[in-house]
Each structure stands twice: as C-alpha cells, then as structure tokens.
Design a protein around this nucleic acid. Structure first.
Length: 326
RNA sequence: GGGUAGAUGGCAGAGUGGUCAAUUGCACCAGACUGUAAAUCUGGCCUCUUCGGAGUUCGGGGGUUCGAAUCCCUCUCUACCCA
C-alpha cells in the first residue's frame, strides 16, 4: 500500500562511506538513489555537503539533489512528499528506490511518518518567539501547560523551538499536539482518522565504524573540503542576489565559514578546526538517533565484504530481487 | 644582571580571608528530538559514595589565622620592560 514498499535504505553517520557503497549497491540492485539528506538539495552547496559528484550521478540516477536554490526554505514534510513522488516515479520505471543519506530526522519521518498537522505559521512563530525573548521561556511553557499538560511535561521550558510548535499546533487546530503526535506511539492509532502516517516497513542498513577511525575520516574529509575550494564556494554563496534561507545557512561548516568571511568568526585555521569538531559532534548526534531504529542492520563500513553484507541484509528482507551478480 | 606582571580543574578565564569543589565559555561524556533537524534543547564532567555526604584540590615548600585559591616568606617557571 505504501509508496515506499519497494524502497531500501542505506544510512549511517557523516563520512562513514555511504556514497561509494551506495553506487555499488544501486548498480547491483538496479536501483536509483534518493538523497536522504537535508542539505544536498541545495544548488551551489556542493563541497561542504559532500554532494555526490557528477560522475557518480551519471553512473546512477540521483533524486532530490540540487532541487532548491540556497535562498529557498525546506521542511521535512516537503522532503517527504518529494521523496514519495520520486519513489513512485522510480517504481513506475521498474527500478528500485534506494534512500541514501544520514539526516536522522528525515529518516524517522520516512519510517514512521509525520502527524498530518498544520505546517509552520511563520508570523505566529515570530510573535511567540519574541514573547519568549522578552519575558522568558517560562511564560510560553506555562501557557502550554494550560492547554496541553502532557506536552508541557515532556518539553523542557528552554526548548523554545518545540514549545512554540506545540503552541502553534494547538492554536491552529484547537487540539493539543500531544494528541496529534500519537502517530509515533501506538501502531493501533493508525486507525484514527487524523493519523495517516505510512508506517512503512522499509528494509534498511546502517554503516558503522570504530569511533577513532571515524573521527580520523571526518577530520581529513573536512581538510579535503578546504583543499577543494570550500571557502570560494561559500564566498560565491555570499555574493548571491538573495541571502541564504535559514535552513541553508545553518548547514554545518557553511555557518562557520560565513561567520569567518563576515569577519565575525575566528581566523581560518581556527575555523577549520571548529568545523572538524562540530562535524564530529554531529556524527555523535546522528548515532543517538540511529539507536532508535533497531530494524536497521548494522554493517561494518570498512570490511571488505561490506557490499555483500548489505546486499544480504536487503535480500533477506525482500521477496523479489533483481540481482544476478554475486 | 635589574624591574614589573603572572602561575587556578583538558583548554580559555573568573574569584583576591569564610557563603569555594571553586562563576562562565569551550572541549569531552550521555540523553532528547513528530513541518528550522548538518538545527535546537537537556543532564554530567577531581576522587569515593549506602546519594545523606566523605576525602583530596587552585605552580612547589614553609608560615600567619579559628579559617587561605585568596595574606606573608621562599623556591621554580612564564611574559613583558630596562640593561
């Protein structure tokens, strides 16, 4: 029933070697790749996002890459819609969709769906945020407690971003967000008319590698990005006629480089070190998400038989596989 | 050789007689995450703990004091200045 029923997932933390393996997997399984990634969607942001090269993209078709300009906004819901479209498209052409990427929130949305609530109301958000700045976050949290005790209990008062969204959903729908959010709690809730999440059972694999090795890879990849002209790329983005969207400008590394180029950040060497550090921290955050998905089969990324193990994991989950190679 | 200013927890940096195991930031460890998510937020971070506390810390040594990271002496080291 789900549009994702033929899909496969290859995920893992940043710089773990997903892209290279993905090409091989895609070629073996006759698949096309859909980027499970919140940043490679942006045109002109190539180096720092480790976007698949044109060579890679000519080997295997990639979707949801370079689909937005850097001044455009992006949300999970938009991404999920487009991912569903791409899936339908690929399936219709007799190919298999292979999600590749490491944006954990999008992965969760893909696996568990989103509650079909209202999208962001920017002006409402702005006024709530302003209020929090003036009178402190407690004010918003206290108000939330009045209309949605369950969410208030779950959310820390300082977590303004989520408190605002909870308030926003309640204001817009008259229904507490905690009611809407039951999508992720109970499968039986799928019968509820407001919870129409796909609840997809998509076979997936997660690449893992020892922390020390992983960190070395991250560090040297950041260095390689600088050597490849990352600064010039960011400079070009700064010279665009329109300023970057909030989502684009908070991309890891771009943000630090933008600050540096604007004279508001540390010197170049320090900026580079900062980006290495932040990338390592990001990888750790990704890992805390991945623990929530026990259905993903862990594969040692550096093992020589990684490709075979991935294929095995997929095959054991599939009834029909268009695979004829060893 | 003379002078001045300093030495504080992984780093930066507060504190200048008790309320100091020592503000804060960073790093580090762990956690959360339902339309900003490569974002944002939370907890921990000297040692031991029956979680009530207990024991050792603020360059080394000595001293003053009921009591010192804070005052005095001395040693070592560092930075800058004059020779």
């Amino acid at each position: 029933m789900s549009v994702f029923k033929n899909a496969l997932i290859l995920t893992g933390p940043t710089a773990c070697g997903k892209s290279a393996l993905a090409l091989q997997v895609a070629e073996t399984l006759h698949a096309e790749i859909i980027a499970l990634d919140s940043m490679t969607v942006y045109r002109g942001m190539d180096i720092g996002t480790a976007k698949p090269t044109t060579a890679a993209r000519s080997r295997v078709p990639h979707h949801l890459i370079d689909v937005l300009d850097p001044w455009e906004s992006l949300t999970v819901a938009w991404w999920l819609d487009r991912a569903a479209d791409a899936c339908r498209d690929i399936t219709a052409r007799g190919k298999r969709p292979l999600f590749v990427g490491g944006t954990p929130f999008y992965l969760k949305a893909l696996l568990h769906g989103l509650f079909p609530g209202p999208p962001a109301d920017e002006s409402l958000r702005r006024s709530l945020e302003t209020e929090a700045e003036r009178h402190g976050p407690m004010v918003l949290h206290a108000r939330l407690a009045l209309v949605d005790a369950k969410s208030a209990a779950r959310l820390h008062p300082n977590d303004v971003r989520r408190v605002v969204r909870a308030l926003e959903v309640h204001t817009l729908t008259g229904r507490p967000i905690s009611e809407w959010q039951q999508t992720w709690d109970s499968p039986s809730f799928a019968n509820d008319p407001i919870a129409t999440a796909p609840q997809a059972k998509i076979p997936g694999v997660i690449l893992v590698l020892p922390r020390e090795i992983h960190y070395d890879r991250i560090n040297s990849r950041v260095d390689a990005m600088f050597a490849a002209g990352w600064i010039e790329e960011v400079q070009r983005l700064r010279e665009l006629p329109q300023s970057l969207s909030r989502e684009a400008q908070q991309a890891l590394g771009y943000r630090e480089l933008i600050d540096h180029l604007a004279g508001e950040g540390p010197n170049l060497a320090e900026t580079q070190e900062l980006i290495r550090t932040h990338t390592r921290q990001f990888a750790k955050r990704q890992l805390t998400w991945f623990r929530h998905f026990p259905q993903l089969v862990p594969i040692a990324a550096l093992n020589e038989d990684a490709l075979e193990r991935i294929l095995e994991a997929f095959v054991s989950d599939l009834q029909s596989v268009t695979n004829d190679s060893g």
